[in-house]
Simulated assay, not measured.
Amino acid sequence: MDTDLLRTFLEVNKTRHFGRAATNLYLTQSAVSFRIRQLEIKLRTPVFTRKRGNLRLTSAGEKFVPYAENILQTWGRARQDVALTDSYQQQLTVGATSLIWEINNTNEWLEQVEAIQPEWALRTESLNRQQIPSALLEKQVDIVLTSEPPKLADLQQVRLTNFVVVLVSNEPEQNMNTIIGLPLVYLDWGTRFAVEHSRIPALQRAPILHSHGCQPALKFLINRGGVGFLPLSIAQPWIDSCKLYFVKNSPIIQNELFMVWLSSNEKYEDISVLIDVFSETQNTC
């Protein structure tokens, strides 16, 4: 299938507008319409309903979105793999949620990998939590960095480090009694964090913001106010500048960062080169 058709389909789905998609793709609107028609001919079904001012996916289009995304990701990895020069003998594809990519530990990990294996080319992928098992099983990624390893029979894992999330507010002198009336910002770290969070009576209310990224949560707390947990490494610069403040007597939640992979991955021997190094790493942010 022509990858240009897939890119056009995903851009139209993103913008929900043929004209805006055309602008983003540097095409004419008629060219975008033609590509969508070509895609629908190949799939033998419409992917969009075209009511004036209300462009929406059909049920077939909704089903096709993850396939289009996976095909483009696979094609991108394939092009990068075969284009490796003599300087780069191997490509390692690393996946993580956007939340994990934002903490300092993952950047440090990438730098360590490059130092250990300078002949490797690294590729990073952002995944949502639900995509992680299938991304590993379908070999879309070689390694995943996660705070909650999925339960897969063939899964191998090593703990890289631990990090803490701390309760902060934009208002000084707050404690576990005074925060009850503040808007709640909830940063979604997964099931384990949700359980810990549910044990804190002062935070048991509907969040004004439920976020899967540190930066939206951080900006909301600073600009709009409220209370919520942030990674210490993200919050510390803003605490130092008196834009955020620790909530007094608040619990500190410990998280762990794991490197996980499948033993059936054909790059297992290459991955094992990293294991001895990182299995000893116990840095705390």
Rank of each mutant, 00 (worst) to 15 (best):
D2K: 07
T3Y: 11
T3W: 06
L5R: 02
L6S: 03
V12H: 04
R16I: 02
G19M: 04
G19P: 00
G19V: 12
R20V: 11
R20K: 14
R20N: 08
N24S: 07
L25G: 02
S30K: 12
S30C: 04
R35N: 02
R35S: 03
I36K: 03
Q38I: 00
K42E: 14
L43I: 06
F48H: 10
T49Q: 13
R50A: 12
K51C: 02
K51L: 10
N54H: 09
R56A: 06
T58Y: 01
S59W: 00
A60Q: 12
E62M: 05
K63N: 07
V65M: 06
V65N: 03
V65S: 06
P66K: 00
P66E: 00
Y67S: 08
Y67D: 13
E69P: 03
N70D: 09
A78M: 13
R79E: 11
D81P: 02
V82P: 00
V82W: 02
V82T: 08
L84V: 00
T85V: 10
D86N: 15
D86C: 11
Y88Q: 15
Y88H: 13
V94S: 01
V94G: 01
V94Y: 04
T97P: 04
T97C: 05
T97Q: 08
L99S: 11
W101D: 02
W101K: 11
N104R: 11
N105A: 15
W109G: 06
W109M: 10
L110I: 08
V113N: 03
V113E: 05
E114H: 14
A115H: 10
I116S: 06
Q117V: 14
A121F: 09
A121P: 02
R123H: 11
L127I: 03
L127M: 00
L136R: 01
L137D: 09
E138T: 14
K139R: 15
V141A: 06
L145V: 08
T146R: 01
P150G: 09
L152H: 01
A153G: 08
D154Q: 14
D154N: 13
L155M: 09
L155P: 12
Q157P: 02
V158Q: 04
V158G: 00
L160K: 12
L160Y: 12
F163Y: 15
V164E: 14
V165P: 08
L167S: 05
E171Q: 15
E171A: 10
N175K: 03
I179R: 01
G181E: 14
L182K: 15
L182V: 01
P183A: 03
V185W: 06
Y186I: 06
W189F: 15
G190D: 02
T191M: 09
A194K: 13
H197G: 01
A202R: 01
Q204N: 13
P207H: 13
H210S: 06
G213K: 10
C214F: 04
Q215E: 15
A217E: 04
L218P: 12
N223E: 11
G228F: 07
F229W: 07
L230D: 05
I234E: 09
P237R: 04
P237V: 06
K248D: 09
N249W: 12
I253H: 08
E256G: 02
L257E: 05
M259A: 12
M259D: 04
V260Y: 05
V260F: 02
L262D: 14
S264R: 13
N265D: 15
N265F: 04
E266W: 05
E266R: 09
E269F: 08
D270Q: 08
I271G: 03
S272T: 15
F278T: 10
F278D: 13
T281F: 10
T281K: 13
T284V: 14
C285R: 15
